[in-house]
């Protein structure tokens, strides 16, 4: 199989630009990148058909090798239609993002951020278990009958050492460190 060098060079350039663009954070650039990638792939499919030949209308006098291979072109037509649909949809999404958030950037996943910042300490699973777990309220006693000292279990959260009960308080939604994270993203977005 022979390959057209011009086609190959153009394809390589399109791939390079496309990959560069989809790594951007701006949605419009990502869309342009996807379009370039789709077109580069169309050129790749075209190249698999070999050099240009005669249009594939059957005639008895023509040598079969003189025809162009019609299959890659049929494939390209299908793939152009598909990339057209995807591009239209992406434009719709970008417009919607603009209407909703007045920005063209890819947004962060807030729940993902929240999980990432949650301390490994879990108030319910990991809290210090009282020795007495009966339903009847009794003063807390150790096994030898003496009063149990104040719980002093500590956890390490984000480089700070905290009392376990304080860490439990911080874990709640709406508490200091979580709302802090939200405000950060907001100001970040507003600055752009």
């Amino acid at each position: 199989m022979t390959v057209n060098l011009t086609l190959l060079t153009v394809m390589g350039a399109l791939y390079a630009c496309g990959i560069y663009l989809i790594l951007e954070r701006s949605l419009t650039r990502v869309l342009l990148g996807l379009m370039l990638l789709a077109n580069a792939t169309n050129l790749l499919i075209l190249a698999t058909g070999g050099y240009a030949g005669l249009a594939p209308f059957f005639s008895k006098d023509t040598d079969p090798a003189a025809y162009n291979d019609p299959l890659p072109q049929a494939l390209i037509l299908t793939s152009i239609v598909i990339s057209f649909a995807v591009t239209a949809f992406m434009l719709g999404i970008i417009y919607r993002t603009w209407v909703l958030a007045r920005q063209d950037d890819i947004q962060d996943d807030i729940e993902d951020r929240r999980v990432a910042e949650t301390p490994s300490f879990d108030a319910e699973d990991d809290a210090v278990i009282p020795v007495e777990t009966s339903e009847f309220p009794l003063p807390m006693r150790g096994p030898d009958g003496s009063a149990v000292a104040e719980p002093t279990a500590t956890v390490e959260v984000g480089g700070r050492i905290l009392l376990a009960e304080h860490a439990a308080l911080e874990e709640k939604p709406g508490s200091a460190n979580i709302t802090g994270a939200d405000t950060d993203t907001d100001t970040d977005g507003g600055a752009k």
Partner: peptide, 22 residues
């Protein structure tokens, strides 16, 4: 956005693979 972009990239990879196979 995440879903569409990732899916389109994987489809492009699949199409490249088809072209190579052909």
């Amino acid at each position: 956005v995440t879903y569409v972009v990732v899916s389109v990239v994987s489809s492009v990879l699949f199409l490249i693979a088809i072209a190579m196979v052909y």
